[in-house]
Nucleic acid binder design. Structure first.
Length: 754
DNA sequence: TGCGCAGGTGTTTTT
DNA sequence: CACCTGCGCA
């Protein structure tokens, strides 16, 4: 037997050796699926399969990179370098670079990120004279995105009665029209958004039989990780690519499907088994990651879901510590509590910073933890939020580079034509836009012929200078490398000078970001090609690549000794010795956006499952009674998911009293803990009011100044005043001995008494 | 055309 | 609370 097969258990080995024909690996959390995938690829190469002919699609670029490295270790050579491996989006963008022209796109097409796409939608809504409050960019974008991920074009969208009725009912009948304009505009700009990378790949394969044949022959083996998070477009592409050889191996876990908002459907898992006559299914059920306590808890929670493939995940590991439940008074206290707990664990049990992860449902929750960690001098690193390449100053600079490579890109052109300020305002911009529309020219073409567009005087000279400058840099590109050109742009256009002039903390950070951007270009373009390397190192490929970098990819190089902070989504595929899962409250986790129908709630539950199963040794679950949201204090109940955990696996000693760091005087220390414990497992120690058992909150829209209302925790009070917008009303309520409180009606549960 | 201020408005999750 | 937008003024 080969050495690399020795560390595998029976089903793992079977999965590695089963190389021919369709294979589905159902891999539970922590069951060694990455190990199986890497060993499987290594085995293929070892058996003599040409490494250029293996395609592996992963969820993040970082995962791809790690897999490559692990394969190199197993094989002891650099064969893995030739693999086609990466995310769907990055692999397809590479394929499309080669064949984009057949679809009428330039090979240096620009990739629009979500912000770019929304900005295009905004201009279209404006051009069509529609109300931007009704046609909010994010709403329209999501709808278009979902449609495209289901492989619907704007034509089909506009022709579909059901869709049109839906839009009519939501009072947004023009979405189809916006969709059409948007598609045409992107095409004219030589730009693809994230979804276009999938859609156009699909079109390329279906409309050009020779291209399909080329890739079907090229990719003799196809492997897909995280299959439960693929969408319909991805499903069809994979099916097409694998149709010739049918050597398709998908790896997934329905229990970890958490991206339905992006069009992912775990239906693809079930469909896979129907698509091929002789599909082999292998289940990996032994968990090597977590203690049995953690695993039992996770299994118990996920068992509440109706929609799932039954699995029996087990472990040989010891039971370990119970899951600690911790209750804090406010979100700030929660931050301090977690930082203290980390400090204590470090001192008492000799853990290092890098052993800890703090996982939350939304990015906005990170702040309290950042502050408290900083105060204790604990090094931390946040993953996610606005990524480096989304920062304004970086995007502005990148826009210059995009224009050099693809002058059709109107979006980027608008970004930089007046940055740094050179006196070209909205008036001129609109004028050019109109001429461009009328004469069916690109924005750039009109700029080049500014005289004909009726532009005169100073503005004309400015535009002509701008055009000359861009052309100069374009020609420079053939003489100098991308880094040198980028550097020249910063210098000659005065961007660097302008940023350097701002000596504020933020200004300094912006300046440093630009230096970092230049460094990254230098590193990318000046890395010598290794033998056999298939990566292209032009400015065009650099620009496409950076747009597709994910949060998980930003971890540059060696692992540093820092506490990791990230959303539960971002933690997928990772593991940590100790996990703090925080903000585990109703309205937050599960999110108030997804708790009102079964499918959404089940996805939240899977998310909870993912969070817990990240931990190897210890899990702390934390919630706060009150937290600041939009500036005022709101109260949330502990999450229903806490109730779903087996009591025997919980250590509730820290949840009996909330940790107080805030100065707060309890008006009635002799609270009624015992009553509440009977009613609900989770103690609510701050309760000083005992609501009747039939307490039903009323609709907040009926509440008016002067009313007498009952709050579950604060008791009876009078509404003194109401403020805030209609969608987000804040009431000031006098609760007598409990004092005056500002309450957000959308979140609080209030009952009208009279 | 550009800047400063007031007011409104919004928070899932991400390629 | 922060961020963004829109408006008024120089």
């Amino acid at each position: 037997m080969q050495d690399y097969l020795l560390p595998l258990n029976e089903p793992q080995r079977e999965a590695v050796l089963y190389t021919e024909g369709p294979l589905m690996i159902v891999a539970g959390a922590g069951s060694g699926k990455t190990k199986v995938l890497t060993t499987r690829i290594a085995h293929l190469i070892h058996q003599g399969v040409d490494s250029f002919r293996i395609l592996a699609l992963t969820f993040t670029n970082k995962a791809a990179k790690e897999m490559k490295e692990r394969i190199e270790v197993i094989l002891g050579n650099h064969e893995a370098r030739n693999l086609y491996i990466g995310t769907f989006h990055s692999v397809f963008s590479r394929v499309l670079r080669a064949d984009a022209e057949r679809l009428g796109y330039p090979s240096n097409f620009t990739i629009y990120d979500t912000d770019d796409a929304k900005s295009v939608i905004k201009s279209i809504v404006k051009e069509l004279n529609l109300d931007d409050k009704v046609y909010k960019a994010s709403f329209v974008y999501n709808r278009i995105s979902t449609t495209k991920n289901n492989l619907y074009t704007y034509k089909e969208y506009r022709a579909d009665n059901t869709i049109q009725q839906e839009d009519a009912r939501s009072n947004r009948p023009m979405i189809g029209e916006i969709f059409e304009y948007y598609s045409k505009r992107c095409f004219k700009n030589g730009a693809m958004d994230f979804d276009d990378l999938l859609v156009n790949m699909y079109i390329l394969l279906t409309n050009f039989p020779d291209v399909l044949a080329k890739y079907q022959h090229k990719f003799r083996y196809v492997m897909i990780d995280e299959y439960q998070d693929t969408n319909l477009a991805q499903y069809h592409i994979v099916k097409l690519l694998g149709a010739l050889n049918e050597n398709i191996c998908v790896v997934g876990d329905d229990a970890q499907s958490i991206y339905s908002f992006r069009g992912a459907s775990m239906q693809n898992i079930f469909q896979f088994q129907k698509d091929y006559e002789e599909v082999k299914v292998i289940k990996l059920e032994q968990n090597y990651r977590s203690t049995s306590t953690i695993l039992d808890a996770a299994n118990m929670v996920i068992s509440k879901n109706e929609n799932q493939i039954k699995k029996a995940l087990w472990t040989e590991k010891e039971s370990g510590e119970k899951i600690k439940l911790a209750c804090s008074f406010t979100d700030n206290d929660e931050g301090k509590f977690v930082a203290d707990a980390i400090m204590e664990q470090k001192l008492r049990n000799h853990f290092s910073n890098k052993d800890f992860a703090i996982l939350y449902r939304t990015n906005a929750q990170s702040r309290a933890f950042e502050e408290s960690l900083r105060r204790l001098g604990i090094k931390y690193r946040i993953f996610g939020g606005t990524s480096f390449y989304q920062r304004k100053e970086v995007k502005d600079y990148v826009a210059y580079l995009r224009i050099l490579v693809n002058p059709q890109d109107e979006e980027s052109l608008k970004r930089i034509i007046n940055y740094p300020a050179r006196g070209i305002g909205t008036t001129t911009l609109n004028k050019i836009s109109i001429v461009a529309q009328e004469q069916n020219k690109t924005f750039w073409e009109v700029l080049c012929l500014a005289t004909e567009a009726g532009i005169k005087g100073n503005t004309l000279t400015t535009i002509q200078d701008f055009v000359l400058a861009i052309r100069h840099f374009q020609s420079l590109l053939s003489k100098k490398n991308a880094y040198e050109v980028a550097f020249e742009i910063g210098k000659q256009c005065g961007i660097v000078k302008e940023l350097n002039a701002d000596k504020s903390v933020e200004g300094l950070a912006r300046y440093e970001n630009i230096q970092e951007l230049l460094n990254s270009i230098k590193e990318y373009t000046e890395t010598p090609d290794e033998e056999g390397e298939v990566v292209e190192r032009s400015l065009g490929s650099y620009l496409q690549q950076i747009t597709l970098l994910t949060d998980a990819d930003q971890n540059n190089g060696e692992e540093e000794d820092a506490v990791k902070l990230m959303t539960v989504h971002a933690s997928k595929g990772l593991e940590f010795p100790i996990v703090f899962l925080v903000g585990v409250e109703e309205n937050i986790f599960p999110s108030s956006m997804s708790m009102y129908d079964r499918a959404n709630l089940e996805e939240e539950r899977r998310l909870f499952y993912v969070a817990i199963t990240r931990a190897r040794e210890k899990v702390w679950i934390s919630y706060a009674n009150n937290r600041y949201r939009f500036g005022s204090l709101i109260s949330n109940e502990p999450s229903r998911f806490i109730d779903e955990l087996p009591k025997a696996l919980l250590d509730m000693s820290l949840a009996e009293k909330p940790t107080f760091k805030t100065t707060f005087v309890r008006s009635n220390p002799a609270s009624n803990d015992h009553v509440i414990q009977q009613k609900k497992l989770i103690p609510k120690p701050t309760s000083t009011h005992n609501p009747p058992s039939d307490f039903v909150p009323d609709n907040p829209t009926n509440m008016k100044t002067g009313m007498k209302v009952e709050h579950q925790r604060f008791g009876i009070g009078h509404i003194i005043s109401m403020e805030g917008s209609i969608s987000n009303q804040v009431a000031t309520i006098n609760f007598g001995t409990m004092g005056e409180k500002k309450i957000m009606l959308n979140y609080a549960k209030l009952r009208i008494i009279e």
